[in-house]
Design a protein around this nucleic acid. Structure first.
Lengths: 145, 145
DNA sequence: TATTTTGGGTCAGTTATATTGACATATCTA
DNA sequence: TAGATATGTCAATATAACTGACCCAAAATA
């Protein structure tokens, strides 16, 4: 930290508060859409990761979501029943399950993403690329630790 | 947006994912401390705001937390019972209730904050002040919309 | 002053999402 | 073949939210 001004406790408290708002708002936007399908934010998070990491395994999802497999299972059961995802046995290791969005899931993801995109797009549209890069960098440092 | 590269969908999807991780990690750190007091993250969020906005009213808290008053009431009852907060009638408008941390609440807040601070401090310690300012700026734009 | 609105409190029931703990099964690895 | 790994499932419980229906007191206003 080259400038201690930005490390004062009040600044850090502000960050903690703002990170909460940013998360809440970003994940609130698509709730009406999810409700149409009788899904919630837990389903949303799973769908998001399955889209981002095509073919992700159960343990892969568990590592990213950091929930128990019982919790994840409820969510995946709903998504399978709804035909939004398909699960394939691993070819190399047939114990593993690889998860994919199918057509219905892709449509749902796109609907959800369109809602979320608005907020991020609006936030970034008048910013220079340096701001965006630095935002991403700080965010990743907060996550990694 | 002066450089469209940073507005590509995949970048926005990354942000959405990273905002989730940042929130989850930041609010996971103090969970062991909260558990000692039989509190959860709902109590944590309330305490945080009461510390930041000393004397905040019930409706003030409701506006920031965006939960129902029934939900908030459960949390505040626990905090009052535990003697972490005190509630005072408004002098100008005696319908209002102003909420304050008392000594016990301040100690609890500090314990919680110390845990959370580590993560943010570590993230920022090797960054220049420009990064920190730009991070804050983007975050506030995401919130405001 | 009479009426309406606002700020807050509460009861009751329900939903969403997560937890712990105990097992079961199939498959891979040493 | 024995043990570890990946996954699935049953049951009970916890946490944090919700909806809806009321209530009271105090402030604002017609």
């Amino acid at each position: 930290m080259k400038n201690l001004l930005y490390l004062k406790d009040d600044h850090i408290k502000d960050f903690i508060e703002q990170i909460f708002y940013a998360y809440r708002e970003t994940y609130s936007d698509p709730k009406k859409i999810l409700k149409k399908y009788s899904f919630g934010t837990a389903h949303h998070r799973a769908i998001h990761l399955i889209e981002r990491y095509e073919g992700i395994t159960i343990s892969g999802l568990l590592n990213k979501l950091k929930i128990t497999k019982q919790s994840l299972n409820r969510v995946l059961r709903d998504l399978i029943k709804n035909k939004s995802i398909i699960v394939k046995k691993g070819e190399i290791d047939s114990r593993q399950r690889h998860i994919f969005l199918n057509e219905k899931g892709k449509k749902l993801f796109n609907e959800i993403f369109l809602e979320q995109k608005k907020r991020i797009h609006n936030a970034l549209k008048n910013l220079d690329s340096d701001s965006v890069l630095k935002f991403k960098n700080v965010l990743s440092k907060i996550i990694n630790e």
